[in-house]
Write a protein that binds this DNA or RNA. Structure first.
Lengths: 346, 346
DNA sequence: TAGGTTAGCTAAACCGGTTCAGACGACTCA
DNA sequence: TGAGTCGTCTGAACCGGTTTAGCTAACCTA
């Protein structure tokens, strides 16, 4: 029946007013008498008029969409639980606000640059999320140059014109180390994420600091790319040594789960002979055996906060930094007193 | 310097031709002399002109974007490795074609409907992917009504006007069962996915058929929602029985990994006392212990094929069904001959 | 009662492309 | 030589909104 879409001109004609006035009425602008306004809105409702997003985009130079660029190896991406949850959080805000999310998944840093540029040049998005912050992140000057509103996930180490939405992951690592130390561990190692990533190096620093705070000697650290495969390799190296650590603090859950696998394979019992802690509290961590003692991250909450902040920035021109509650340690079954302590205790 | 963006009018003036001709030249339309065409393109290059996507969208009624709606509980979403990889595959095609992906993550089926409708009504996308096919999928009539080009992931059980891009997962399940039967298992159970999902019930049917083919009695099946938690519960139920199965075929890897955890917890050794097979070959499955014998799915390939097909459909108006290579069994360490067979063999 | 505000509204320009009818000259052919 | 055809190009309409300049009538003030 409604073969052709109804436009603003149809509404205007039917309501006996000009196009402009319909636009004013729709956007709650002053200069329309209450009676006329309600008549226009009634007609619009009758006719089932929905303003064309495309036309509106053209004249307002807005796209009513936000952009997220994910630079990640496709294989690794699947085991990274952060993005799906983060996106779910973002969407929960956007869907009520008539906004859409444009997602770009790219394999390399170079492609990431191109992708941001394209998204902005094409006017696909009104703002972007900046995730996986790196040291002196080159994307910050890029986005500044592009003149696009953005929100960083976490606080960059250099100057940044963008609001930051952060979760402090230091306390989580600190609690993990303190917990292990208190259980009696003295040789605690860290399987860290990439040091080019801010959260990778920050967790590592938190680890070092926590060891000092516990009065323990510096621990061994192996840097990885956060991948399951790297977590497995690093664990194997660690456990193959003379003075193998009695506890390992992993920078994320996927690597910790890989570590669990390596320990099983080597016949090292967890937690009796080796204690393990993770970071993220992914869905799996509760269901592996033993269930993973880990730090709860809240990517859904993070997504919601980041989306809210970015929309505020776009609409008002400014937005304040947001600090989300720090991630906390969740004690489950993968850590216990080390073997020698056990023995002496029995 | 280039404060204001350069438009088609600037190019036209500078090249000494009309706007229309510039448009023709840009779009490789006939009616432009070779010399003029190259002059126009040269000027466009000089000026750094990029046609405005928004203006083009308005006049062509195209958005140069594809839509993906994911209906999934946020918590479950993180452990589902399908979507990130699928999306990576889709993007690998889109990025070269100047197309974007609009992603919508919703919590419920109802919201899913609204989301499709909104995406299409707003003209955000030129076509959509239809994933997680259900029986008599109500989204097919919806999309038909909306008149939007679509591609289904897998072949629907009812009539569908849309091309299907499918991977047959029957052989994978059949091979799993045959492999277990050949190892000597006779009590094989299946932890199935949701029967409302086409791939859930199809894998289940494949399981039943394979048992018959192997001359084995019907096996026990527990239906789940594909989640890690449900996989864990179902395994616990199965192993708590009198005549517990000696082998379990899981409908996906996350549940299989959860099953591994339950077995460990109950002190049941895998694969000596219990054999396990999964489905998907997610990143984790290689790194748990024992490494998971599973069926390799190829979501990245699926994403590429689906994107290619959808773009072809949008551009030409038709596209043929695509059948991707069937998923095959990957033998690793989580299945072996059952305990009693072992004994008698020794 | 003239002059100045103001609220309410219209007409037209504008965003930046695409598309179509038709003008124009060159070329072909009868 | 005149009509028809073709290739090349122009001008204007169009997509469907937003925005601005300016008109009109009513009301206020001196």
């Amino acid at each position: 029946m409604n073969a052709q879409k109804v436009t603003i001109a149809d509404v205007a004609k039917r309501a006996g007013v000009s196009k402009g006035l319909v636009s004013f009425a729709l956007n709650d602008r002053p200069g329309v008498s209450p009676e006329t306004r309600s008549r226009i809105l009634a007609v619009a409702g009758d006719l089932g008029w929905k303003p064309s997003l495309r036309a509106r985009s053209l004249s307002t130079r807005r796209s009513f969409a936000l952009g997220l660029v994910v630079a990640r190896n496709p294989e690794v991406l699947g085991s990274d639980p952060f993005f799906p949850s983060f996106i779910a959080g973002v969407e929960s805000i956007l869907s009520n606000r008539g906004q859409a999310l444009v997602l770009s998944v790219v394999p390399s840093e170079e492609a990431e640059f191109r992708s941001y540029r394209q998204l902005v040049d094409d006017g696909r998005v009104d703002g972007v999320f900046l995730t996986d912050l790196r040291h002196d992140d080159p994307r910050i000057p890029l986005l500044t140059e592009l003149g696009v509103p953005a929100v960083t996930l976490g606080r960059p180490d250099g100057p940044s014109p963008f609001p930051a939405v952060s979760i402090d992951d230091t306390p989580g690592i600190a609690e993990s180390v303190a917990y292990l130390a208190q259980l009696g561990h003295r040789r605690i190692a860290h399987i860290a994420g990439s040091s080019t990533m801010l959260h990778g190096s920050r967790r590592r620093e938190a680890f070092d600091a926590a060891l000092r705070a516990a009065g323990l000697p510096a621990g061994q650290t192996i840097e990885t790319d956060f991948s399951v495969a790297a977590g497995s390799d690093a664990t194997r190296r660690l456990l193959g040594q003379e003075d193998a650590p009695t506890a390992i603090v992993y920078a994320n859950d996927p690597m910790a789960i890989a570590g669990l696998g390596v320990a099983h394979e080597l016949g090292i019992r967890v937690p009796d002979e080796l204690s393990i802690t993770g970071f993220d509290d992914i869905d799996f961590s509760r269901y592996v055996y033993p269930p993973l003692t880990t730090v709860s991250a809240t990517p859904v909450v993070w997504g919601r906060a980041a989306a809210t902040t970015l929309l505020a920035l776009i609409e008002t021109g400014t937005a304040a930094d947001v600090d989300l509650p720090a991630a906390r340690l969740i004690i489950r079954g993968s850590a216990a007193a080390p073997a020698h302590t056990r023995k002496s205790a029995t």
